[in-house]
Design a protein around this nucleic acid. Sequence first.
RNA 1: GGAGAGAUGGCAGAGUGGUCGAAUGCGCUGCCUUGGAAAGGCAGUAUACGGGCAACCGUAUCCGGGGUUCGAAUCCCCGUCUCUCCGCCA
Length: 415
Amino acid sequence: MIDIKLLREDIGFCENNLKKRGFCLDVKTFEDLDSLRKKVQKKTEDLQSEKNKLSKDFGLLKKEGKSTDKLSKKIDDIKNQLSQVEKELSNIQFKLSNMLMEIPNLVSDDTPDGKDEFANKVIREHSKPKVLKSKSHLELTSEISLELGNKLSGSRFSVLSGSIAKLHRTISAFMIDEAIKAGYKEFYVPYIVNYDALEGTGQLPKFEEDLFKLENDQYLIPTAEVPLTNLHREKIISSDELPIKMTAHTPCFRSEAGSYGRDTNGLIRLHQFDKVEIVQIVEPAKSDQALEDILNHAESLLKKLDLPYRVVQLCAGDLGFSSYKTYDLEVWMPNQEKYREISSCSNFLDFQARRSKIRSKDQNSSTFLHTLNGSALAVGRTLIAIIENCFDEKSNKILIPECLKSYFGDDQIII
RNA sequence: GGAGAGAUGGCAGAGUGGUCGAAUGCGCUGCCUUGGAAAGGCAGUAUACGGGCAACCGUAUCCGGGGUUCGAAUCCCCGUCUCUCCGCCA
């Protein structure tokens, strides 16, 4: 969440900044609520102080065997007042924290203006596509079945088999190894997390409908960002442990509510997909550089896979709730004749750290650290990109990218 | 799933109704001592919020929530988690 002190000191700045992403900050409600909070809090604490003092006196009188009747009445009176004021205070604080939890992160100065993905800014194009147009991955191989996915679960699920299932596994293995080589520590994490974890990274309370909810306030993870970042929740991290670099390969579960009819053809948008995620926790001064590092790492994978891609910077309106600045990597998808997102690399500044209390301490003051993450990469979309970009029409083969050959154990898949 | 034990500061651990934000030890920081270091001595060392220019003051927090009481780390109820034993199991 945003620093409440910043809201108090310069709410105009926050209002204008958030406007860029299309968020309308309710300044009046915030200011009214906060000043009411201050007033009621002061009153509550004064009454508590009075009560504490009188209770001590009461004890003394009792010890001396003196009458406590008069005092009893006074204390009763204060307790009555207190119970009312306390109720009021907790009510206000509840509202205030709800409001705070639903305010998105500020937007970086260099984020382009715009209200949707069409305003995203292309930073660079890495290489021209070699295959401009192809059949869809569904047509190219029979080893991807949406029908079976549907049979087992419902729409937006898939079953992979044979060489394609192996290639899928191979891709994750390659990516996780690359992350480890780049200094990220591998984790195996739960795929089910609790409310606090999701609140910590910003998915809750606002985006519950995007998640698969289980019983007991537990949810399937929408990304490994959630468990990885939350490994350090409520921790004070000493500066010699920084930067913290973590990676995990997990399935991701998304309800895709509100995306009916979009990307229904193939593996592009499923309820369950695999992803290798990288997460960094860094000192505030170093997060700009860390974002570039994460982006570079994700790009290095696409380069090694020899897939055509471009780097775009998300415009303010397309930026995720928690993000301050985001680069997307978009890979060329020949069948769609479009670049499609395959990685998203974001700097959250201290937005997540403040929610999840990830701090470091120097001298006497503690500071919230900065968190960042990036996909490196989405496995299913990489699989499609390889099938469609590396398909050789003449020989009717998928030519396995050089870097995967040793993992895959072969250099081609015959269709 | 059944039975029992437990959860206290960075860590270990005392505390069973009042002056307890909490003994003691370790760790950490500063100072003294020293040619320098070790050892030793002294002092300091939780977090959040509110008030104040500041010194400082107030409030809350001993797993979470509720209750009893003038007063709760301490008593009662509910929940969560951990450990031990039994059962089951990859």
